[in-house]
């Protein structure tokens, strides 16, 4: 199967004034195959956001390579961005804009034409049930509504690869349901998706394959069945703690 994202020996070291050098990622290797949902599962501080920031061109790796649609990010970051839609909990919106103005702004800076943006906005507001709010300013929206607008922003250029960093973090049950349904719908449309999460249920319900990330290291990659077979465990939770625990004992 064609891989749309390929991560090879990816490492990242941060220089911290207090702690010195901090190894955030250690030789990560995984890929995102066409049409699948790949989940990076790990606790807070495992390195999920750092990995996704590197894949989405926000950060540079210390060593290793990332390929997006065969384009190495080291030389082709700008072109590679055309294939990516990126959404994290740390990506807030300009709240003085209305939804329409906001989407137009992001469409224009991404080089999309006026007609294309107009058509995409019509489709996205219908998909996300935002028609009534299209000309309202974002600053009055609830967290769930803002998340919907953020998703619309990420999907506007119709990228084949979509990256969600903790997509249901901070959302209530209703909003979480909307987002998870949407991720499934995007997969059905043929999008390839990477999500990072510390939520076992979300990973279990949505992901075709999972990478378990702990202290910057990828402890295992595969389908839940493959991971279960390798660890001799039944549930994702047990698999996770088995992998993390085994490594901790070795350390």
């Amino acid at each position: 199967m064609e891989s749309l994202v390929k991560v090879e020996n990816l490492s990242k070291v941060f220089k911290d004034q207090g702690k010195g050098e901090v190894q955030a990622l250690v030789n990560l290797n995984f890929e995102l195959r066409a049409g699948e949902i790949f989940g990076l599962l790990g606790p807070n501080g495992a390195g999920k956001t750092t990995a996704l920031r590197i894949i989405s061109t926000l950060m540079q790796p210390t060593s290793g390579d990332v390929f997006i649609a065969q384009l190495n990010l080291r030389d082709n970051a700008r072109r590679a961005k055309e294939y990516l839609g990126f959404l994290t909990a740390e990506m807030n919106l300009y709240d003085y804009f209305t939804v329409r103005e906001l989407l137009f702004f992001f469409g224009q800076v991404n080089g999309l034409t006026h007609t294309y943006i107009t058509d995409r906005i019509s489709w996205l507001v219908e998909l996300l049930d935002l028609e009534k709010y299209i000309d309202r300013r974002v600053d009055n929206f609830s967290t769930g509504m803002k998340q919907k607008v953020s998703i619309a922003r990420a999907l506007l250029p119709d990228p084949p690869i979509i990256i969600f960093d903790e997509p249901i973090n901070g959302l209530d049950l209703m909003a979480s349901r909307v987002v998870t349904n949407l991720i499934r719908e995007l997969k059905n449309e043929g999008k390839s998706i990477i999500i990072s999460t510390h939520n076992m249920n979300l990973a279990e319900n949505l992901c075709d394959r999972i990478g378990i990330l702990f202290e910057g290291e990828l402890r295992g990659v595969g389908t839940i069945e493959e991971l279960a077979r390798n660890t001799g465990q039944n549930t994702l939770e047990d698999i996770f703690f088995k992998m993390v625990g085994e490594f901790s004992e070795l350390e």
Partner: peptide, 12 residues
């Protein structure tokens, strides 16, 4: 306000 990353992932 955490809006900068949104700008950095665009084609700008």
């Amino acid at each position: 306000k955490e809006t900068l990353s949104t700008l950095l992932v665009t084609q700008l």
